[in-house]
Write a protein that binds this DNA or RNA. Structure first.
Length: 312
RNA sequence: CGCGGGGUGGAGAAGUCUGGUAUCUCGUUGGUCUCAUAAGCCAAAGAUCGCAGGUUCAAAUCCUGCCCCCGCAA
């Protein structure tokens, strides 16, 4: 039985860890995860999904503030790992640590590398309108998702795919692929293949402002944003209420492309013949099926219209 | 004490500042019109205005305390 250390933080990593344990022979001796963070309006300190899961399975959990000091390196070295498995840990792993395990550091990445290297591959695949994505098992080197590929599997992206559905799907995909591949990798039966750097694309971490709707966005782009950017950072439209002279953000939670019935200026709202709330853009228009005004609960586009029609 | 919005018939809102017995749109139910309609017309049901206390002749509205929901920030 190999000596494995697992590193990971969010739900996706939990899925991978769960599958790893279920596979029987690769239960990690140590799990490294990010430190507890204050979450929500009340700033309650919350452990990562991986921490909770590991503790339930009686695995030692370690939450170092940094991996870049001697203490971290010594601690890991002391475990004499054959291999470290990483899934969305959230911090850069220094070279000193990469060099410790004899079978290297194996990473689960949720895209078809070299496409979408970086922190948000799932969202970027959706934003770009890719019709497929997948999971990649690769070796970590010093670069950002640049290491050689051990194995890969492809997953189609459905038209109505959202971040949340794809995230869940790819977590399973990645976990399955890892447990399929890991034994062969540890046994030395797989020769990793270098990535084709000329085909590389970057999936940079998303910022709040990436979810703002602007006049230059067309309907197709916004529709993809809605599927890719919820629940975070969300897609927001700034609305103005003439009567109260206020500006409010309107989150768009669900939308679909529709046929234009009128010719209105970009970012104006109207109602279709079917009484659905409709957002006009520079090209095409969108039916807003579910929206959430600032300070309110999510509601249907029609409900929003009922209460705001005087301002539209 | 991080910042802010809100709780009004089943839904979304107005009304609150400038107290005076509840308004609008939608839905529901019944009727009616139409070749027909997620259409029109007519009618009806449905609210102790988040909870508790206070001020007042009178409180959705002013004061005090509490509960709950949400957006931002992180």
């Amino acid at each position: 039985m190999s000596n494995i250390i697992f590193m990971g933080t969010p739900k996706l990593a939990e899925t991978v860890l769960a599958r790893l344990i279920a596979s029987g022979t690769h239960k990690p001796k140590l799990v490294i995860t990010q430190q507890d963070k204050p979450v929500g309006r009340k700033q309650i300190m919350t452990p990562s999904p991986v921490k909770t899961f590991a503790q339930e399975h009686g695995i030692e959990v370690w939450q170092p503030a940094t991996l870049k000091d001697l203490a971290a390196i010594e601690k890991i070295r002391a475990h004499k790992p054959d291999c470290i498995v990483v899934a969305a840990y959230g911090k850069i792993i220094p070279k000193m640590i990469i060099d410790i395990p004899s079978r290297g550091i194996v990473n689960v990445h949720t895209s078809l590398l070299p496409r979408w290297r970086g922190a948000s591959p799932i969202q970027h695949a959706l934003l770009a309108g890719d019709n497929k994505t997948g999971a990649t098992i690769m070796l970590i080197d010093e670069g950002l998702d640049t290491g050689p590929i051990i194995s890969q599997s492809t997953c189609p992206i459905a038209r109505e795919e959202t971040y949340e559905t794809l995230y869940a799907k790819l977590a399973e995909f990645g976990a399955d692929l890892l447990v399929e591949t890991l034994p062969d990798w540890l046994a030395g039966k797989i020769i990793p293949e270098a990535q084709d750097n000329t085909k590389a694309t970057l999936a940079p971490i998303l910022r709040k402002q990436d979810g703002e709707i602007k006049p230059e966005h067309d309907a197709a782009t916004i529709e993809r944003m809605v599927r890719a950017l919820n629940p975070w950072p969300g897609v927001v439209l700034e609305t103005r209420n003439m009567k109260h002279e206020t500006r409010k953000m309107l989150k768009i939670l669900k939308a679909r492309i529709a046929r234009c019935e009128q010719n209105l200026s970009p970012l104006s709202l109207s109602l279709t013949a079917q009484k659905e709330l409709c957002l006009y853009t520079k090209e095409g228009c969108l039916v807003l099926e579910t929206v959430q005004p600032e300070g309110k609960k999510p509601m249907s586009g029609h409900d929003y219209y009922l209460g705001n029609k005087s301002a539209l």
